[in-house]
Every structure is written in C-alpha cells, then in structure tokens.
Amino acid sequence: MSESPCVRNCCLDQHDCCLGCGRLLNEIIEWHSADKIRRDTILNLAAQRLTQRQQLYALRRPAADPSE
C-alpha cells in the first residue's frame, strides 16, 4: 500500500490544495479508505500540482542578477 505523501507542512491554498504534499482536501480525507490504484492516482495528481506550482513560482520570481 502506498505511504501517505504527507510532509507535515499542511497549509491549504485558495483551491484547497495542500502546499506541502499537493493533494486536494478531498484527496487527503479519502486517502485512508482509497485502494492502491486510487492512491497511485492521487500521488500522480499531487506530483503534477506540485510541479505546476514550482513552475509558476519560478516564472513569478525575479531573475537573479548575473553580477552577483
């Protein structure tokens, strides 16, 4: 069985997505009753969300000054 992706950094954004693990609130609640296939799906979706969040953050962050 897949282990919980929880990283103990629980904070939900405006879309009820955990900033720590990338799961939606309903996926967090569902986790313990989900079968392996559903857990794998949740893990994949959470990983995609975290990747998208990192990409958006990188786009919004000012470019580093090359002279530093």
Rank of each mutant, 00 (worst) to 15 (best):
65 D>Q: 03
6 C>G: 12
65 D>Y: 02
28 I>M: 11
47 A>H: 12
66 P>H: 04
26 N>T: 11
22 G>H: 12
57 Y>V: 06
12 L>C: 04
18 C>A: 12
40 D>C: 06
46 A>V: 06
59 L>A: 07
41 T>R: 14
34 A>T: 09
37 I>E: 11
17 C>I: 15
51 T>Q: 14
32 H>Y: 09
5 P>I: 13
27 E>S: 08
66 P>C: 07
56 L>T: 09
21 C>G: 03
36 K>H: 10
60 R>C: 07
40 D>H: 05
25 L>C: 02
21 C>P: 04
49 R>S: 11
64 A>T: 11
25 L>S: 05
50 L>N: 03
48 Q>V: 06
53 R>K: 06
49 R>W: 04
68 E>P: 00
61 R>Q: 13
8 R>S: 14
49 R>G: 05
29 I>E: 13
43 L>F: 05
10 C>K: 00
32 H>K: 13
43 L>A: 11
66 P>I: 05
24 L>M: 12
37 I>H: 04
31 W>A: 10
24 L>Q: 12
57 Y>N: 03
18 C>S: 10
46 A>F: 03
13 D>M: 03
9 N>C: 07
54 Q>N: 12
22 G>L: 10
24 L>R: 15
38 R>I: 15
35 D>H: 08
59 L>K: 12
12 L>A: 09
9 N>D: 13
12 L>I: 03
56 L>H: 09
34 A>C: 09
6 C>R: 03
45 L>A: 13
11 C>A: 15
7 V>D: 06
45 L>Q: 15
17 C>F: 14
16 D>N: 13
62 P>N: 08
49 R>A: 12
43 L>D: 11
25 L>M: 08
61 R>D: 01
34 A>F: 04
